[in-house]
Design a protein around this nucleic acid. Structure first.
Lengths: 87, 87
DNA sequence: CATCACACGTGATTC
DNA sequence: TGAATCACGTGTGAT
């Protein structure tokens, strides 16, 4: 990385083809972002108590929620055990 | 919003104070991103079967997992009901 | 060679 | 006024 000097030229079709290689990337990138946002949105949908709308918080709430679920599952499992075996 | 014209000027001390308003933002942004990534990382940590490492997939897997947990909880709840009331 | 996924800096917007 | 959050286009490394 970081070549001292590189006499690069972009190449890309020398003649016409003004459509530039770049704008391809732009679109892809836009898509990636959209997808990511949708996912984030979906995540927000399955998590009950969202505190704030910002991305970081959404993920955080999701994490908390998962851990909560884990906890509950454990508790419930224990309860079953008791009911089953105990009597 | 969207004023036709706003003759705004960044101003910031006309004379010295070259410290540019911008570089403040750069740092903030860097932080935001870092935080977000850490969150994403943490999310990856609590979700068991990650298919791919890319951000979108991570979130997706998390969503799937949550739904799975929901399902299980329901099933287990039902089981308890049965054990309890049944007799 | 192209394609994907990423981090970056930047301008806009909002509180 | 300043801080925080976002979406964007771009350059880059990996596949």
């Amino acid at each position: 990385m970081d070549e001292a000097f590189s006499g690069y030229y972009d190449s890309s079709s020398p003649d016409g083809a003004a459509s530039s290689a770049a704008s391809k990337n732009i679109v892809s990138e836009r898509n990636r972002r959209k997808k990511l946002n949708e996912r984030l949105f979906a995540l927000r949908a399955v998590v009950p108590n969202i505190s704030k709308m910002d991305k970081a918080s959404i993920i955080k709430d999701a994490i908390d929620y998962i851990q909560e679920l884990h906890d509950q599952e454990k508790r419930i499992q224990a309860e079953i055990m008791e009911l089953e075996s105990g009597n």
